[in-house]
Amino acid sequence: MLLHWFMAVGILGLFGLGLYMVELDYYHQWYQAAPNLHRSIGVVIALLLLVRLVWRLVNPMPTGLGKRWEVIIAHWVHRLFYGLIIGIIVSGYLITTADGQSVSVFGLFELPALLDGFENQEDIAGEVHEWLTNTLMVLVALHALAALKHHFVDQDATLRRMIGRKG
């Protein structure tokens, strides 16, 4: 649950930072720092996602509240979330590493370029990164609306459970 909110804040922050950094002027003080931060937080999100997926494997999943079809959709939405986030992380990594450069994470360590560059790698990866992110953000909005619906319309415990309150 804590993991969920860390990732939520991180991903929304990355979305905003991404939109902001691509519009920066070359002489802007943040021109280099913003992309560095974006790449670093992206790697942290990747690690958090890994922890979350392992957690999911070794712990029983909480039972969803609501109608049967709602629970089924919720499962698929979660899988779609994981798929999109993985896709966004991989495509972001492929932009930076297209010419064999490594990804520096807060200047602490470097992720090396693993894939041999394919033709126009940074451009294709860039488009994929953008479109997967737009899709993710639409899904995030629906996800948030659904959570509010559980809380206000169904008046069940879904949202309360997610902020750490029992029932």
């Binding site: 297209a98 450069q101 126009n120 790698q121 940074e122 451009d123």
Partner: peptide, 16 residues
């Protein structure tokens, strides 16, 4: 023009 190559993928993407 897309074949521009400055030996830095992120810069080349930006240039294109």
């Amino acid at each position: 023009v897309a074949s521009i190559d400055s030996n830095h993928a992120e810069r080349d993407k930006h240039l294109r």
